[in-house]
Design a protein around this nucleic acid. Structure first.
Lengths: 349, 349
DNA sequence: CAGGGCGATGTAACCGGTTACATCAGCTTG
DNA sequence: CAAGCTGATGTAACCGGTTACATCGCCCTG
């Protein structure tokens, strides 16, 4: 493997000059510089960025620690992070804790010396895990986590408010008895969404003990909720799932059973993953603007790395209601819609 | 930042002993070891993996260079890669060339010294780009690329064979005039899929000049193809799209226009992204087994890193036909299906 | 008890860069 | 022409680890 010393030797200069020339420092004769550059090109020199980061004390990379890497939620998140990281010339070091909260600390430790900062998403609410993860001393931004201390930067979404918005939307759309399907018990997002749902139900209907079905964010657990309904063990006319995948599982069981989604039973999700737009009927959901969440967190970390300590504290994004067919009372077949449109075009006003 | 020298001082030993103790080498008294370990714990020592990789000459990380990071295709791919990387204790350094083939070389260069090997996907067929990307001297495995030299390891899928399989499936399902919607011109996968389609059409129908509509893998370009058909400028009864997103775009326009997909016009895609399963009607497609592709490539790279040079050369995965409703002639409403099932249950045999 | 062997520990070189400081040549200027 | 300045270049220390080799103390053995 060719090093900068090889380049220096080839060009007949010292390593210091070689380093200066290759890094574009000013104090090198242009003659020397070209000689060094051509030596580097001839030897196909590629700088060793590991060694480089050792002296420069920065690595131009940020670490991303996520609970899981699958599903659209995470591809969206990474897309948002990558967009701003790439714009700042930063690499992304990815780590997946595979659902094991203890691994977050390991992952963060393993990244010490390879990254300048950390983006950590640890949806489990138990705090000690987060502290572990942050113990490397690296600057970090938390995603969708309760910051264990107020001086730690975090970016999250307003789950509570968003769940209220959705619940009110369901009530306003005329649904009377609404059930909520929760996510995993220790998941903070799910807890907050559930709290928002409960508050909005109490406010709207006075019902103090709304129906809550335990789920785990999986498609299967959404399907189970739908099965309860079909079996007659759940009399509701709307189901609000704590994430989109459960809503989709729910819809497919209902559709299979011939129940008119939207008309007979309204279904809503949360996150607005891309699939939500493509399923039939399309799914009403709260857009968590996941890519934006990632981008915001990355931006915040970069600002902190640049020395702005005033960027600590929490940034909260407000999800937006995306109303689609799964909560529309009159869902017509596409063909019918088409005929209506044609009719309207032919008979203006 | 606390270094191993601080730990050594705290424990009253030399750095060598500290290093040995912390790395679990045998030749340390257990008494000394515990003393060093508690010193490390007390000081919250986290090893600097950058410095570590400098002497160990390995970084326990692999670089992944991809043309884009969005969409389900890439989250699937990364999922597969991560699964095996994680199992081998490897980190993932991600780089996105954002559609610019020249960036692949930059990305690969930037990774020198931070990764032990590279996984490169560069769907652009122009060879010099690939050579550039490989010029770092790092071991690399190519994904879905023509290896520019036979001794370079690569993993790909049999696009040609898969396209033939799909085309034959369409013919066997009774579709007579089939159009193909291609991907971007320089995309190798698309070219091979198109070639497979053409060959199968010639074989099945003798038609030497089948209909090929240029697309670009985007949902919009699939929609455009459908618009051609609706406008009557394309008389076909099946559309085979070079990827799923185009097929989905195509379907939504057809459905919007009230055309019965499957019945009147068959639509097929390629890749089997998760959405394909959720759209209505569900999409017939060739499963590229993307996660498996990533996992296979990662496994291959790891074997090469372990010193097995016999693993060079190409591995080809065979996609599998996933037949769904978009190419079924009798697509019934879910309610109808349900009634039929009930009828069959009540009247066995 | 001297000498050899062995296991624990320390010293220092090294990995591949960057950079503070020293050096040196060439020019200006009094 | 000597002194001083400037800018290019070289020397060597350093970043934070690992590890070859040296050292040292201890125990065993003849």
């Amino acid at each position: 493997m060719v090093t900068i010393r090889d380049v220096a030797r080839e060009a007949g200069v010292s390593v210091a000059s070689a380093s200066r020339a290759l890094n574009g420092h000013a104090n090198v004769t242009s003659e020397t510089r070209t000689r060094i550059q051509s030596a580097a090109a001839k030897l196909r020199y590629v700088p060793h960025s590991g060694a480089r980061s050792l002296t420069r004390r920065k690595s131009d990379a940020i670490g991303v620690v996520l609970p899981d890497l699958f599903g659209e939620y995470f591809s969206e998140l990474i897309r948002g992070i990558d967009r701003v990281a790439h714009a700042h010339g930063l690499q992304l070091l990815l780590s997946n804790m595979h659902g094991n909260p203890h691994e977050a600390a390991n992952a963060a430790r393993a990244m010490r010396g390879q990254v300048d900062g950390l983006l950590v998403m640890s949806p489990d609410v138990r705090r000690e895990h987060l502290f572990d993860a942050l113990s490397t001393g690296l600057p970090a931004v938390l995603l969708n986590c309760h910051a264990p201390a107020p001086d730690i930067a975090s970016v999250g979404i307003d789950n509570d408010g968003a769940a209220r918005t959705m619940t009110r939307h369901l009530v306003d759309s005329g649904y009377r008895r609404i059930a909520f399907v929760s996510g995993p018990r220790h998941n903070r997002d799910s807890q907050e969404r559930q709290a928002g749902f409960r508050a909005a139900i109490i406010e709207a209907t006075g019902e103090r003990d709304p129906i809550i079905i335990p789920g785990d964010y999986s498609e299967a657990s959404g399907a189970e909720a739908a099965n309860l309904l079909i079996a007659g063990r759940l009399t509701v006319d709307a189901i609000f799932c704590a994430n989109d995948m459960m809503a989709i599982g729910c819809c497919s069981v209902l559709a299979e059973a011939g129940i008119a989604i939207g008309e007979t039973v309204g279904v809503a999700g949360f996150d607005d993953i891309p699939i939500a737009h493509y399923v039939t009927p399309s799914l009403t959901t709260m857009s968590a603007r996941t890519a934006e969440l990632g981008a915001t967190a990355a931006r915040k970390l970069i600002e902190i790395l640049a020395g702005g300590d005033e960027h600590a504290g929490a940034t909260i994004l407000t999800p937006q209601l995306v109303e689609r067919d799964s909560t529309r009372r009159a869902v017509r077949a596409p063909r019918t819609e088409q005929l209506i449109r044609e009719f309207q075009q032919e008979n203006p006003s």
